[in-house]
Computed example of a mutant assay.
Amino acid sequence: MGCAISGSGVTPRSPENRNSEDISPARLTPDHIRLIKESWRVIQEDIAKVGIIMFVRLFETHPECKDVFFLFRDVKDLESLHTSRELRAHGLRVMSFIEKSVARLDQLEQLETLARELGKSHFRYNAPPKYYGYVGAEFICAVRPVLKDRWTSELEQAWQTLFQYVTAIMKDSYLEEERSHTLSSSRERPDTRSTAV
């Protein structure tokens, strides 16, 4: 059930990974946008199935990801997840986010706002950025069989770029939220240093 892309190449570009010429997030071209929108029309017909396959694959290829999901943390039999209502619901939430992202491809400011909010919520859920790129890789592996002969290297590149773009923004937002939380927590702690002379 392996997928060559799994765990490679679809990770967000972080400040630690960027060099001086690579400061901005991945750039979506008009061709990327067209290819993503065309393929989404087919993918959305099997949206629930893709969501489940994506997360079962995620837990198979990166079992440590289960630790982020309270409901699935102790699941040993991954095959049982194929019929899990909870996994179906979570898969549909993620697929809904992807659907909203596709709908905002012509309004990148709105897509950025959506991704920023998702990054903040992932901070609240304690879901760290190191896992974000895995979801994109597993999404690509899950939709490839759905699209069959429509799948091309150009389409794969388009979806990779979208996930790189979104996950880079999510990570930045997560880290901003983390810094803000750390700063406000340090302000709330009383100064315990002695003031006696």
Rank of each mutant, 00 (worst) to 15 (best):
K100P: 00
S180T: 10
R93V: 08
L81N: 14
R144I: 08
R104I: 02
E79S: 04
E156N: 07
L81R: 06
L155N: 00
W159C: 06
A115D: 10
L183W: 12
R124S: 07
M95Y: 09
K171P: 01
A137L: 10
S184P: 01
L78W: 01
L114H: 10
I98A: 11
I169K: 10
R88G: 00
K100L: 03
N126C: 08
A137V: 03
Y134R: 04
L111W: 00
E177A: 11
S121K: 11
M95D: 09
L78P: 00
F97S: 11
E178P: 01
E99G: 07
V135Q: 05
P145A: 15
A158I: 09
I140L: 14
P128Y: 15
L175Q: 11
D106A: 04
F163W: 12
Y134V: 10
D74V: 09
L78T: 07
D149I: 14
H82N: 13
E79P: 00
P129Y: 14
L118M: 15
Q164V: 06
G91Q: 03
V166I: 12
S96T: 15
E138S: 01
M170G: 10
H82R: 12
L87G: 04
Y174F: 04
V166T: 15
V166R: 13
N126S: 13
S80N: 04
A142G: 03
R150H: 07
N126G: 11
K130N: 08
E138F: 01
E99L: 01
E138L: 02
Q164D: 03
A127S: 08
Q107Y: 07
Y132T: 15
A158Q: 09
E117T: 13
D106F: 05
L183C: 06
E79I: 09
E86M: 04
Y125W: 07
K120V: 03
N126V: 13
V102N: 10
F123K: 11
Q157I: 06
V94Q: 14
T182E: 15
F70K: 14
Y134T: 13
S101N: 03
V143Q: 12
E117P: 00
S184W: 07
M170K: 08
V75R: 11
W159S: 02
A103T: 09
E117S: 05
F69A: 13
Y165M: 10
V102R: 12
H90V: 15
V68F: 12
H90I: 13
K130C: 02
A103Q: 08
G119I: 13
F139M: 02
E177H: 02
Q164G: 11
E86F: 05
V102A: 14
H90D: 05
F70D: 12
R179Q: 05
L183I: 06
D67G: 07
K171Y: 05
E99W: 04
E109Q: 14
R88S: 00
Y131R: 08
D67A: 11
R144K: 14
Q157D: 11
T152Q: 04
K130I: 12
G136L: 03
G136H: 05
T152H: 12
K171I: 02
L87S: 12
